[in-house]
Design a protein around this nucleic acid. Structure first.
Lengths: 226, 226
DNA sequence: AGAATTAATGCAAAAGTGATGCCAAAAAAT
DNA sequence: ATTTTTTGGCATCACTTTTGCATTAATTCT
């Protein structure tokens, strides 16, 4: 997504803040909307579906917390990031804010640079949530980051060697891996293990993931099929 | 962010400088790119999006100041730190440099050690700006500013190492952090501690935040789950 | 082709290894 | 003086590898 397609809604009752923060964000290329109180904020949020909402806590009419709660109740705004703007040391608002469903909060006074990089960080984090280091193979999802496998929605934790063996085989479904190749990759060139080691691991994988996922090619090696 | 993921762009017309500075930074583990004049520098900056640019002031074709101005105009390079490289006593360039948007400057001749520690300091500052004061993760609220954790509305004060360890693990819930990674981040690359240090800290966190928040992946590392 | 031979793999349990948990005490920091 | 951090020694547990034998598939022999 390009910067100019990203919408940010700014809600604060102080025009000064609105202006300076708004200016900096516009300058960065974001599309900025503003509102001067909670009511208006919620209304604009519904209308514009912003990606990020920066919400002052202390406001007349409707404070930020209440507004946030309303926003969170709206299913259309589920993916929206909400950040509070609060004076340093206002402990209560922090806790209450997070309870209300905020994702982060920024302390006033805000330095433009800090603000901008914070906004960028938030949007980045938000983006990255979907892009975890994960590979789909057949009905398996292999997540190297979390060292876990998801098979048909069921989560399976595998020990290291089993995980790496499966990773290897599943990396090219259908391909037959020779025992040598497997040893080289999973165990390493230097390590020497007995002849029964591999198939014991294969057996464990078969126990855990179903017999038919692993096929033996006698005299050659194994392959994973989906 | 790991060192090897940090990109540094070096722009100087003297190959000697390029080599010695580049060598020292590569040696530290950074990813180093080089360019021999302003034009090339700006081009590479756009392409590689480095985190830090070290820019010689006096160069043919396009001098550092002009290059810096161009860099600063590019919104994608807003988070990039620019530091000038200048001969001692070139007062004028200093002033002009800061005007052009530089963050720091380094005087030639450069001593490797000084250079490296300066680079580290700059990157640290950069990092801190990027990290939010407060982050919400699961039912935890981590406040880096005040070094405290709020769990289900209850406030918990953690000692430094425990706090940083938790911060790290909770920064990516579900992700498995290898022991090495943890050591690198929490203890620093240079520090060497015994093998039992990490798990003692993990144990303390488990005592304080509940056993099941931290999962051990044997042979790999630990992960935080919410 | 069918039987016999040979080689490779499957299997279960046992043994081995190594990583982690845990404690208590020393060392460092505050 | 108190709190935090690190260490070293053990105990323990999870994972890995071995072992010995059964089974199966491929190959060779009649």
């Amino acid at each position: 997504m390009k910067k100019k397609d990203i919408k940010i809604l700014l809600v604060d009752d102080e025009p000064d803040i609105l202006e300076i923060v708004g200016y900096n964000l516009s300058n960065e290329g974001y599309q900025v909307f503003t509102a001067e109180n909670g009511h208006e904020g919620v209304k604009k949020a519904k209308k514009e579906q912003p990606h990020l909402i920066i919400l002052d806590v202390m406001m007349p009419e409707m404070d930020g917390i209440e507004a946030c709660e309303l926003i969170r109740k709206n299913p259309d705004l589920n993916n929206t990031i909400v950040t509070f703007l609060t004076a340093r040391g206002e402990d209560y608002s922090q806790v209450a804010g997070f309870d209300a469903g905020a994702d982060d909060y920024i302390t006033k006074p805000v330095k433009p640079k800090v603000l901008v990089s914070k906004v960028q960080a938030l949007l980045r984090r938000f983006k990255e949530e979907d892009v975890s280091d994960t590979v789909k193979v057949g009905n398996l999802v292999i997540n190297r980051d979390e060292y876990k496998i998801t098979s048909k929605g069921k989560e399976i934790i595998l020990p290291r060697k089993e995980f790496e063996l499966l990773s290897l085989l599943a990396s090219k479904p259908g391909k037959v891996f020779k025992r040598d190749e497997i040893l080289d990759t999973v165990w390493g060139n230097e390590v020497v293990v007995g002849g029964r080691t591999i198939d014991v691991h294969i057996r464990k994988l078969r126990e855990k993931l179903g017999d038919d996922s692993f096929k033996t090619i006698k005299g050659v090696g194994y392959k994973f099929v989906d």
